[in-house]
Amino acid sequence: MSVVFEKSPLWQRVMPMFRGFDGPLAFAVFMLVCAGLLTMYSSGYDHGTRFVDHGRNMLLAGTILFVVAQIPPQRLMALAVPMYTLGVALLIAVAIFGITKKGARRWLNLGIIIQPSEILKIAMPLMLAWWFQRREGQLRPLDFLVGGLLLAVPVALIVKQPDLGTAILVMTTGLSVLFFAGLSWKLIVPPVLLGLVGIGLLVWNEPALCADGVRWVVLHDYQQQRICTLLDPSRDPLGKGFHIIQGMIAIGSGGVTGKGFMQGTQTHLEFIPERTTDFIFAAFSEEFGLIGNLLLIAGFLFLVLRGLVIAMDAPTMFSRLLAGSVTLIFFTYAFVNMGMVSGILPVVGVPLPFISYGGTAMVTLGLGLGILMSIAKARRLVQS
């Protein structure tokens, strides 16, 4: 007698993999992805294969999200030390025999060209969350000092490349873990106040500090030029200040309602440099105006708030710290990009999540979202 085993339909085998996914988070990502595809088509349809490649990168990020979401937080914790160690080792290798392009040594040839600093965007919060999980219930000031040293090593190596944008992102994720772990306000407020005073003095003394022939010993020449250009873009309107000036013109010309889809003159007459990458927010603003900007900002705020809710409800300290710091990656990306395009922050080469073209950044976003989904799934399994 033969026994016939009926194989269940594919959808019935796949659906359990989506069980526990956070619906509001998925909805926020979907809306931002739609905005990204719409904007990329308008700004990049005549820019080679940018639109098609952007869609491919999003599919890759979605696949990474789905795969990482299946990994329980406990297994993610086991990856912390290996990922951090590998990332730091590769950064040291870059410093010794990395590839130099346009005055920056950021890449490594391992058969394929990689940028090891990107690994630290995820490895850094993983490592610090692992460290504070081990010290849970017995945290001392020394533990925060160790955490600060773990953060300082890769940040210093990335700054040396130099790559200020990535260094800011890695430092932000690390500092957010220290903050969420319970770092005292007494240690947070003084540096913040000192920074605000420094910014005020910089703005006040801009004519003298940015005069021809004056050199700042603590920064590279190009970093000094970026700050001086931010303070007064008209100093070099056809050179260093061109990006900021054209970005502000595009944003302002969009008005309240925008010029309409594919109707942006600054964009399509190619006045906006890097219109599909770092300055795509200017192209978006020109075509969709203030209303479009408010909706886009609302989408990012919803994504960030939902990530923080997932962090608050996470079942372990490791999950809470990791979810909170990963969420702030999205906030930092969006805030820095919109700030530099709007002329309130220096141009540091940070993409706008889901909107800007870029494969490496999209992979990082997919990893981050996968981690959030994994933690959300773990929380719901505990509750059930």
Rank of each mutant, 00 (worst) to 15 (best):
R320H: 15
L303F: 11
M317Q: 03
L322F: 01
M317E: 00
L303D: 11
A311P: 12
A323D: 09
F300Q: 10
L308V: 13
T327L: 05
A298M: 10
L301V: 15
I310M: 07
L301T: 14
G324Q: 03
L303W: 09
L321P: 13
F302R: 05
M312N: 08
L301W: 11
I310L: 06
L303T: 13
G307A: 04
T327D: 09
A311V: 07
F300L: 12
M312H: 08
I297L: 13
I310T: 08
S319K: 12
R306A: 09
F318R: 02
M312R: 11
F302L: 14
V309H: 06
V304I: 15
V309A: 07
L303N: 12
M312D: 06
R306F: 10
S325A: 14
L305S: 13
V309R: 08
V309D: 01
L321M: 14
P315L: 06
L303G: 13
A311E: 07
L308C: 13
R320V: 14
I297M: 13
F318H: 02
L328G: 09
F318I: 03
M317I: 00
I297R: 04
V304D: 04
M317T: 02
L321K: 11
T327M: 05
T327W: 05
S319M: 10
L296H: 00
L322H: 02
A298N: 07
L328S: 11
L321H: 09
I297F: 11
A323Q: 05
D313S: 04
L308K: 05
